[in-house]
Design a protein around this nucleic acid. Structure first.
Lengths: 246, 246
DNA sequence: CCAAAAGTGTTCTCAGTACACCCATGT
DNA sequence: ACATGGGTGTACTGAGAACACTTTTGG
């Protein structure tokens, strides 16, 4: 009485329809002071030559979370990429993939500065895109950047992902996932400014971070170097009080 | 070239495994001053006689969101239940359903006081459970309420759902989804106290709600009755500044 | 008439902000 | 030496907490 035979029996009996389940990853990183996201150019149909979020099918014997972690490792080429991965939202409209019924579980990853990615087997190219160049902000409908063509519903996924990243900085310590240890408060400050695209008073920022228990911990190993080095705080990831967006 | 034949062709070719996709609903309501959630008692195997979140399979031609809305309507017996429904998280560990590989997209619903539910076809019973009686809080491991046996990974889903409901009250106007229009500020106040299980100063609460643009709007139709009646504000659902948990 | 809830005022405190100002380090 | 970020001090402001108080309604 295996899982597969059960499934096929039930499917033939018409109890429920079969779905393909995929994971899609919005991997964010700070590069040259700008928030960027990793996209791959599709080599095959459909949406050939359009840009898409990296992702792939969930295998029969792995959890959806594990599939996301596996795809992330494959895409970055690193066993431990040193950042943070979390589930974003599931997209399951019929017709979002013209070939078949696919339900996609989207994830966001916060990554420190990573090496330039290598295109996968079914990708023509892979590169980091500045989020400002993707035309996601629907502020001024006339003068916006159009951005590249995006495959499937990935523009919508990216919009949700971007909002998640921006809001997560407010009430969590996940900004530290964007920097490599040890880091300075100046680097952390630059992360906030890049993600929010706004100026933040450095003095007040320093005080607020240092006053948040468990956000950062001084790196004693570095000694008394003048830009003091810090590491990620160990305990809670929830920030209270939160750091407010200007 | 239909979706189904494509799927079967690809499946036979071994490109990707088939999944069943379900939705599970955590429908919250305030009853007698306590936060409650709707659970159904399972009539069949597996987890017979255990309590489970209402839910069901996503159909071939409907979106996942639509499936959740359909299940919600079926479960409450109302075409428009007058509350709020949103996606929570997707649970996709292998083995979470012993029969087959199921990926479940969980939703939370905020409902005003609803009629007592009727058990569905495959349910032995259906009732509202006070969340305090479910033993979800892992505060005191010794003296906690054990609560009923919960099917599948629904205890974990409920934990996440409960945290979502509690935090959503802070930064959104969704508390209004728990009351029927028109409502008084006292009723809204009772919602916050029930969900957070804490005393909140009524005077400060009133000022804060009335100072939040778009939270509530005075119901002019009721005239100058003394407990003034309000309706949900039309515009934004995001609350800034937020109402802080004590 | 009295209790309970609705609604208003007042004070205190503290976090957040703006901005001025020193200090260390590298070139 | 001096420019550049690192790091600190300080006064102002406003939101939130606590709590006293008045007003209305229902029994």
């Amino acid at each position: 009485m295996t899982t597969e035979s059960d499934f096929l029996t039930a499917y033939v009996a018409g109890d429920f329809p079969p779905f393909a389940v995929t994971v899609d990853l919005a991997i964010f990183s700070i590069r040259d002071g700008a928030l960027t996201v990793l996209l791959v150019e599709r080599a095959g149909h459909p949406y050939q030559r359009d840009w898409a979020l990296p992702g792939g099918f969930v295998r029969a014997d792995e959890s959806v979370d594990a599939a996301a972690a596996r795809e992330l490792a494959e895409e970055t080429g690193l066993a431990d990429f040193g950042g943070h991965l979390e589930q974003l939202q599931t997209f399951g409209a019929p017709g979002r993939d013209p070939r078949m019924r696919v339900v996609s579980v989207a994830y966001v990853a916060f990554a420190p500065d990573l090496p330039t990615p290598v295109p996968g087997t079914d990708a023509a190219d892979a590169r980091w895109w500045a989020v400002d160049a993707l035309g996601l902000d629907a502020r001024a409908p006339g003068a916006v950047v159009p951005g590249p063509r995006l495959a499937f519903d990935h523009r919508e996924i990216l919009r949700v992902a971007l909002e998640r990243v921006r809001s997560k900085l407010e009430y969590s310590t996940l900004a530290t996932a964007f920097v490599t240890e040890p880091f300075t408060l100046g680097e952390l400050h630059a992360v906030y400014q890049a993600v929010w695209g706004a100026e933040i008073d450095l003095g007040n920022f320093r005080r607020k971070v240092l006053a948040s228990p468990g956000f950062v911990a001084r790196d004693e190993g570095a000694g008394k170097v003048r830009p003091a080095r810090y590491r990620r705080g160990q305990c809670s990831t929830v920030l209270n009080p939160s750091i407010l967006r200007p």
